[in-house]
Each structure stands twice: as structure tokens, then as C-alpha cells.
Design a protein around this nucleic acid. Structure first.
Lengths: 226, 226
DNA sequence: TATCGGAAAAATATCCAACTTTTTTCAAAT
DNA sequence: ATTTGAAAAAAGTTGGATATTTTTCCGATA
């Protein structure tokens, strides 16, 4: 475990186990395709065999873990195909969600968008200067919050859920890019600023293109626009 | 339980419980928003409390059941909003999937499509003449098989999963329409025939429009095209 | 040497019974 | 009518026990 992030507040045991394992998968502590043996995990993370079993079953639904009947669980693979598949789904869900939010969002939504972008800009500065795991996690959370906020006015509960799920699946790849120093933060800052402006001025065409660029950059893909 | 559909073949206990409960939710035996108490379900469907708990947690991920921390589970609501949300997601996922399949599908895919449509046409005849629950279930399965086959060549594992998930969520609504005799099977037959023709002749525009019409009709929504 | 088969070991899946904590219910008191 | 708080119900958790399945490994056979 990277840092004993037990939020001993209100969460249930299964939820705590899930977030710990989720984090370790995101950071690659549990590498792709690794077998997840109940007993071993139980000793490493705590909890009973049942709790662990339920946790893994839950994470299988999230797409972070692969379940095979009577053969247990393993960390979801992270091949080029997976990356492209996740990229496709993120583009589809987030673009649609943003479009709908821009059609429906009110002033309160706009304020939330501004707030989320502001938080992110601070997190970007922090992660550039202090690239440890805690900062990385906070940066990633800020990114997620922006995405979530952008979609929050789309009016479709299921679309939001789906987008969140695929964002979670993409975490591993983004954090790997960060670790390898392959993120151009200057370009990012510019892109995010333009995205925020486009969203607030309700320039749908520009916003969707910028969002697409951002998601592609997030996953290390080539840009569409020059 | 409608009919003790235990497939005592290979499935695990949790899988059997899930398919039994899934079916009872689809048929409305377990109505929307009904509280699902572990102990009561355990007695009705069998299995231990853990098996039931895992089953419900799994079904929550499928979107057929709603889980609230420390407050148990209830059958997912089935409001007009839910219907429209599911409709939106089915349109998005299935249209994109079909488009991609039509770009990529080979002759083997075409053969599968023809086969699936043929099976469905037989099931349609059966469900019109003999509208009992078993026939309804077979008809529904044939519909699902067509949808799954249409998407099978789309090249995106996650897209296929999503589409299947939302199809499952829409089952309740389709079966309700069927029960209430609100399905125009003549129009359906025509639509399906035209859809198959459009798909096979790779007429993307026509195919996507027909698919949209079919999904909308499936969920009792107004048609877009006159 | 390769592989085939089957015993041994490991791991999963399941159940039972008890216990803790949280939520819900319900009736009495303000 | 609202609040309060104790009793009841239900969810969450655990440990241990057992059955079933998968994997591993080793010797026999071709």
C-alpha cells in the first residue's frame, strides 16, 4: 500500500478495501494481469475473505479487475487495445455529456465549472513542482472533478456514471504518462484555459474539439487538430 | 419465481441467483423500488446471505438494483426519466456500435446477422400466437441476440458491454409493452426487414435511422421519422 | 524426449452461526 | 404535532468449516 489512505470516516469495509486496491491498481503497484488471490490480498489489505471477494466482484463491474468464473480475479489488462478502447469510450461519453450540459447548464453550473477549473489550475502547478504520489493523486482527482463538473448538467444519470467509470479505467494510463514525464503542462494549461472559455461562451463546436484534444492528450494519443 | 430456471449446468450459485432475480425484475414480479431484504430473498431464492449479498452488489453494477450504503438494496426505479435515460444510452451505444460494425464487419459477421434476424423472425411469430411468459422471454432473448450480433464486429469490447447493460435495463419496459399489447408487430416486421437489408447493403444512413426507430419503438417512444 | 494421466496442493465458492453497528420503527413524553 | 429514546430489524462483518474446481507436479508410457 502506498500510503494508508484509510478514510476511517463513514465508509464501509468493502468500500475502504476497494479504494485502496483501486489506488494500487492506478499506480501500478498491482500491475496489469496480476493474479489477485483472495487469501493474499486479505492479508495485505485486511478484511475477511468475504469482504475481499465482494470488493473484487465490485471492481470487476467497474472494469478495473477481470473476473473469471471459478478462476478468480486478476488486474485488468492494459494493452494498446485497452487504451484505444477506453479512449473511444471517453470521447463518446464525455463529448456527448458536455454537449448536453452546454445546452442545459444554468449559471450555477457555470460557477461550478469555473471553480473546478480553478482548483485544477492550482493542482497543475503543484504537480509540476512536487511530483510525488500524493500530489499526483490530488492532480488526478482535480482532473476528474473538472470532467465530472462539465457533465454534471447533462441530465443523464447513466451517462455520468459511464463517464466516471471510463475515467477510472483511464487513470492508470494518465498516471503512467505523468510518471514518465510525458505530459506537456504548458500545452495543457493553454488547452484548459481555451476549453473553459469555450464552455462559458457556449461555443459548442470549439468546446467539443478542445475536449477531444484534451482527452486524447490525456491518453498519449496523437492530436486530431494541428 | 416464474419458472425454476435453474441451469444446473456450469453456473455458480451467485450466477443462478442473479439470473433468477434478473428475470423476476424484468417481469415485474419484483416491482420497481421494492426493498430487497437479504434475509427474505435468501429464503425465497435460496443461497446464503453472502451469496445473496454478492448477487445484489453485482446487479447494482448492472443497474437493475440500487444499492445504498448501509441501507441495503432495492429494485431500480422505473420512472419516465429512467425510461428516457435508458433510451438515450441505447441510442448512443447501439448506433455507434452498428456504425463501427458496418465499417469493419466481414462476411462471417454478415452471416451471423442473417442468422440472428432469422431466429428473431421465428420468435416474433411465436410470441404473437402464444403470448405466455416463456415465449416472451425467448422473443426478448432473440431481440437481444440481434442487437448483440449487430454490434459484434464493432471492435470495442467496452462498447458491447455497455450496450448489453443498457439493453438489460430496458427489458422491463419492453416486456411491459408486450404484456399490454402495445407492440405493432406488423410494423416491427417491416422495420426489421428493412434494417437487415440496409445493414447487408452497407447503407449506413438508412441502417442507423432504422435502428433508431426500432429502439424508440421498443421503448414506446414517438418515432423521429414519419 | 515428449506427453499423458492422475494424485496432491492450491485456490475458489459456498454455507453456517455468531457478533457489531447502523437504520428503522414505534410508543411515550413534551 | 413534534421530539426523544429504547426496542426491533436489518445490514455489515467475521471466523471457521466444507465442497468443488483448478492448477501443479511427478512418474509412467510411447
Amino acid at each position: 500500500m502506498l500510503f494508508g489512505g484509510r478514510k476511517e470516516d463513514d465508509e464501509t469495509v468493502v468500500a475502504m478495501l476497494a479504494s485502496a486496491i483501486r489506488r494500487d491498481i492506478s499506480f501500478g503497484v498491482l500491475p496489469p494481469d496480476e493474479k489477485l488471490k483472495i487469501e493474499a490480498l486479505r492479508q495485505a489489505y485486511g478484511g475477511s475473505n468475504h469482504s475481499m471477494s465482494e470488493t473484487l466482484r465490485m471492481m470487476a463491474a467497474e472494469g478495473l479487475v477481470e473476473a473469471t468464473s471459478q478462476r478468480g480475479f486478476r488486474v485488468m489488462s492494459a494493452t494498446q487495445d485497452d487504451l484505444e478502447d477506453i479512449l473511444l469510450m471517453r470521447l463518446q461519453t464525455e463529448k456527448l455529456g458536455l454537449k448536453r450540459s452546454m445546452d442545459r447548464g444554468d449559471v450555477a453550473w457555470e460557477s461550478n465549472v469555473v471553480a473546478a477549473f480553478h482548483t485544477l489550475s492550482r493542482a497543475e502547478v503543484a504537480v509540476v513542482s512536487r511530483p510525488d504520489d500524493v500530489t499526483a493523486l490530488e492532480w488526478d482527482e482535480a482532473c476528474r472533478a473538472v470532467s465530472e463538473t462539465l457533465l454534471s448538467a447533462c441530465g443523464s444519470r447513466r451517462l455520468i456514471q459511464m463517464a466516471g467509470k471510463f475515467y477510472n479505467q483511464s487513470r492508470r494510463f494518465r498516471l503512467a504518462l505523468l510518471r514518465e514525464g510525458r505530459i506537456d503542462f504548458a500545452a495543457r494549461a493553454q488547452r484548459l484555459e481555451r476549453l473553459q472559455a469555450a464552455v462559458l461562451s457556449r461555443d459548442e463546436f470549439a468546446a467539443l474539439n478542445l475536449l477531444e484534444d484534451d482527452i486524447r492528450a490525456d491518453l498519449g494519443a496523437r492530436q486530431t487538430t494541428a
